[in-house]
Each structure stands twice: as C-alpha cells, then as structure tokens.
C-alpha cells in the first residue's frame, strides 16, 4: 500500500533522508522510531509531497507519487500531525469537513456525501457530540480526536501519524493511539506512525522501523528491533529491555544505574561525601 524505495530527500543544501527503503501493507501498523533529527518527520513530508524527493520513489496504493497531483496524493495519504492547527472561528464539524478537501476540489463545494463521510469519521472517533463546539473550548485529547477525524474523513489508503500523542497524558496517549490504529486496521489502511515512546511502539505496532541518521537501521518485529545493544548505540544511552508482564512485548527502560548517568540514590551519596 505504501512503498518507499531508495528515497533521498531533504532541504536545500542538506539531505536528511539518505536511501530509505520501507513498505507498509494494507491493514498493517508500522511504528517509526529513532532519535530526534533522524528524519522521521522529513520522511512523512516526503511521502506526502510537502518536500520533493531528490532520488528514489514513493508509491501510494501502487502509484508513483511523482505522477500524482497534490489532490490525488491527498486522497491516498492523510497525516495526523503532532500539533495540528485548528483555525479559530470554525466549529468542530466544519474542521472535520475540511478533511474532505481532496474529494471536493479547489473550486467545488461540499455535498451530502462529504457530510456523510464526515459524520462517519466523527462517530468513529467519538467527537460527533462535539460537532457544534468551537475548537477553542476543546481539551488537548479532544483536539487530537478532531484532527484524527479530519484525517479519516479524507478516506485515505495510507494513514501517517507524526507523534500525534506526544503532548498528551498517558491515558490519552494510549487511547488516541489505540483508536487510530484500530480504525486504520478496520478500514484496511496502511498505518505508519512516528513515535518517540518505544513502549507505545512495541505494544501497538506489527513491525517497528528504527531510523538512524536518514536511513532505516533495522525493521522487524518489536522483538527483533528493540534489542538493548542496538538501542544503546543509536540513542546513545544504556537501556535495559524487559518483557511486558501481560502482553510479553519488549519494554525499553533507561538503565539509570550505569556509568553515564546517576540515580538519585548515588547522587545523594555523592552529596553526603562532600
């Protein structure tokens, strides 16, 4: 559904992506992890055509994105960004309706079909009851549900999540993530989710792609990718990997008692010595 081959892309004078190969199948959820600056957001930008690839190709539902118009691309791939802008002065329903833009066209106007798709997306994300609320009154979790609804109203084949929950509390993080992934699977979308939280990645993804410095260092099941020596090398921090007691998935924790850092206890000892 989504396939990226030998993709090079970046900004003027600076290639951020240096030969990315990645494929996400229909109904599959792939988590994209890697340290800050490794190119996760740039990859999502290159897939959606915000930046132009220098080399290589991106295929959405079989079509090379270079042969697709901006509008055709937006019908195939939707993004839930980290901090989506929800312009002031529009109700929640109007915000979600904006997701129908690639189906309406530049000069057209929304019809009953668009309203029906909007309603489906809002019911699925449990924000239909917010329909007439102005966005300024929404909480952080509600805002992200509205943004998710907007992306679903786009009826894409590929759903791209760019750290959509990193500023939310634990409960909302898990719920929004779970919701996005369940809806993506139910609708046969390919889901690619950039996440910082390695535990979220491990618990919810079918596969994990670990990025390092503009390349995919390793892609595979959570067990294959979340290995302590690999994470330690790429994140530059010693870690321990445990088993989640109920799911059995790997859970990555910083190894606080190591030579590089200091636990509060050892810090206390140091102070006492002085």
């Amino acid at each position: 559904m989504l396939s990226v081959r030998d993709l090079w892309a970046g900004y003027p004078g600076r290639s951020v992506l240096r030969g990315i190969d990645l494929a996400v199948a229909e109904g599959e959820v792939v988590a994209l992890i890697g340290p800050n600056g490794c190119g996760k957001t740039t990859l999502i930008r290159a897939i959606t055509g915000v930046i132009r690839p220098e080399r290589g190709e991106v295929r959405l539902a079989g079509e090379d994105t270079r042969s697709l118009s901006t509008r055709e691309r937006a019908r195939r791939a939707a993004v839930v960004p980290q901090a989506a802008s929800l312009p002031a002065g529009f109700s929640v329903l109007e915000q979600v309706l904006l997701g129908r833009t690639p189906h309406i066209g530049l000069l057209g106007s929304a019809g009953a079909d668009d309203l029906a798709a909007t309603r489906r997306a809002m019911l699925a994300t449990d924000c239909w009851s917010l329909a007439e609320r102005p966005v300024e009154e929404l909480s952080g979790g509600e805002r992200q549900r509205v943004v998710l609804a907007r992306a679903l109203a786009q009826e894409p084949r590929v759903l791209l999540l760019d750290e959509p929950t990193s500023h939310l509390d634990l409960g909302h993080q898990v719920r929004i993530f779970q919701l996005a992934i369940r809806l993506g699977r139910q609708n046969g979308m390919a889901v690619l989710a950039a996440v910082h939280d390695l535990t979220l990645a491990s618990l919810f993804a079918d596969r994990i792609a670990l990025m390092e410095d503009g390349r995919i260092a390793l892609a595979g099941t959570p067990e294959e990718v979340l290995r302590p020596e690999l994470i330690e090398r790429i994140y530059g921090m010693p870690v321990v990997v445990l088993r989640h007691p109920t799911t059995g998935r790997p859970v990555v924790l910083p190894d606080g008692a190591s030579r590089n850092g200091g636990t509060p206890a050892s810090l206390g000892e140091t102070l006492r010595v002085e």
Partner: peptide, 22 residues
C-alpha cells in the same frame, strides 16, 4: 470561488498541502 480553499489555508500551509491544496 476560492472561498472554501481559503478556509483550508487557515490551517498552516503544510497541512493545506497535505489536504490536496496546491
């Protein structure tokens, strides 16, 4: 006729592009 598209532009430009607006 661009009135609805101007509404989309009230998102930022990157998101407008990801919604299919040139």
């Amino acid at each position: 006729p661009f009135a609805r598209t101007l509404n989309v532009l009230q998102l930022n430009e990157e998101q407008a592009r990801q919604l299919g607006v040139n």
